[in-house]
Design a protein around this nucleic acid. Structure first.
Length: 287
DNA sequence: ACCTACCTGTTT
DNA sequence: AAACAGGTAGGT
């Protein structure tokens, strides 16, 4: 489900409700989903919610004075959700972790934050933080993440520097590689290539400097638009208050095979690339 | 770079 | 019954 715009929207929706609250109870409901590594989050105060690629990081300060800062690292994978609740209702099916959160000055006015995941691919890790606020011992992909696409290090120069090493890979596979760009998935890779007017099967080695520059602009534009629409809700995705996004109404490429291109009217096509269904306009994206 | 596995639910 | 779904890790 969630790519950068959806994860960012979840971050923004839960941030004001959880910041400053204390985790006064933590309930793992399904074995294997919450990996605490022997650490204990209960009693910690949540001081911030950050995002890196498709990961969310809840910054925690333990109150026992015995431990340094902790980070609760969350990856929603395909169908994960973080849901705020104002009542202690029975956890719905597929709820795997529940946090009870109170304000230290209002201990009798709790809210709950549930991790819900139909397919159970998602994970929540509890990790220590290093002095720079980075998680220690994060799962494999985290430390290898490439630049944030909406940040300054993501540039045509960065992509050009990868061109030789990755010359034979398709642009689609390139954009899905989290070490190249952190946060794109199947939807926004297709949307970015459409916006850049580049064919998804074009090999990286044949992309010009000008085209890389167009691609950088396209990725930034698409992601910024999708964030401002609070993400794409096709099936499962909702924000922290169980609300759908609106970007599904703005899709130009993803899921549009067989339908007319919204620019030129040509019938959109699809092919399998990097193991994922890929949709493109054979006219606008001819390269 | 490709496969398969991990899961459940929905659509064909 | 089979294919497919927003993702990633592990093996080849």
């Amino acid at each position: 489900m969630p790519e950068l715009p959806e994860v960012e929207t979840v971050r923004q929706t839960i941030l004001p409700s959880v910041t400053g609250r204390q985790i006064d109870m933590i309930s793992p409901l399904t074995p294997g989903v919450y990996l605490s590594g022997g650490l204990d989050a209960s009693g910690s105060i949540i001081t911030d919610v950050r995002r890196r690629g498709k990961y969310l990081l809840l910054d925690l300060i333990p109150q026992d004075g015995l431990h340094g800062p902790l980070i609760m690292l969350v990856h929603l994978r395909m169908t994960g959700r973080l849901l705020l609740r104002e009542r202690d209702e029975t956890p719905p099916r597929h709820t795997h972790l529940r946090l009870r959160l109170t304000r230290p000055d209002q201990p009798d006015n709790p809210i709950w934050l549930d991790f819900h995941d139909t397919r159970r691919f998602g994970r929540v890790w509890l990790l220590t933080a290093d002095p720079e606020g980075r998680p220690v011992g994060a799962p494999g992909g985290y430390d290898a993440l490439g630049p944030e696409p909406l940040g300054p290090e993501f540039s045509a120069a960065w992509l050009q520097g990868l061109r030789d090493k990755r010359k034979n890979t398709s642009l689609k596979a390139f954009l899905l590689d989290q070490t190249v760009i952190a946060g794109l998935g199947n939807i926004y890779a297709d949307e970015s290539l459409f916006a850049a007017k580049l064919a998804p099967y074009q090999s990286v080695g044949t992309v010009s400097d000008t085209q890389f520059s167009q691609l950088v602009d396209a990725v930034r534009q698409v992601l910024a638009d999708a964030v401002s629409c609070q993400g794409t809700s096709l099936r499962d995705y909702v924000d922290g208050w169980n609300r759908k996004g609106r970007f599904q109404d703005c899709l130009m490429a993803y899921g549009r095979a067989g339908q007319p291109c919204r620019i030129c009217g040509t019938v959109m096509r699809k092919m399998k690339l990097a193991g994922r269904t890929t949709c493109w306009c054979p006219d606008c994206q001819s390269s």
